[in-house]
Amino acid sequence: MELMGNIMMTAFIAVFVENTIFSRALGTSTLVVISRNRKNLFGFGLSVTYITALISVLTYFVNKLFANNDNSYIYMPLVYICVLGFVYILTLLCLWKFLPRLFAKAKKYVHISAFNCAVLGSMFLISKYCETLSDYFIHGLGIGLGFVFAVYLTAIVYDKIYSEKVPYPFRGYPIMLIYLGILSMAFWGLSGHTLNY
């Protein structure tokens, strides 16, 4: 029961309190790019979740092998990129072999969902804050689900953001940033702040 509670709490923190987009802005550029092409927003989000979850497990083993000296910050990005490349190729090969229909749809955005700041950033973040394999996995999954949640919140206002009712200087990208800022402010409140009266 205690373990279940810990898992739920870790996942809640990763999705809401430390959401990659709202708390650290990781993956915002990718969100801006994919929101312009509205198709496959959820497919893209799920693809990111799958990659962050899988990558988190591999990151645990890679860290055990390589990240054990003071100079690891110099070469670890290269190691992480190699792991990402491996997962990317493995995913494409599996889709091509076993799910050809999904492969035809997914191949257009698998590369963006693998090589972006949210995924690479998740590898650095979980390396910094997690210790056990289960921690790594839950955080990785939570970061991915947090990204899906952010994509959902962007998708539901897409028509309004690009509406002609919005004055031209604000339409699209500028108002999206302001909207993300307001959401970020709301989620920032969840991390708990006391007011001095």
Partner: peptide, 20 residues
Amino acid sequence: ALQNPFGGFILLGLIAAVFR
């Protein structure tokens, strides 16, 4: 508040609108 990420988002959005 502009020191925080949410302040950064809002300020960047406003500057992007002015730039446009």
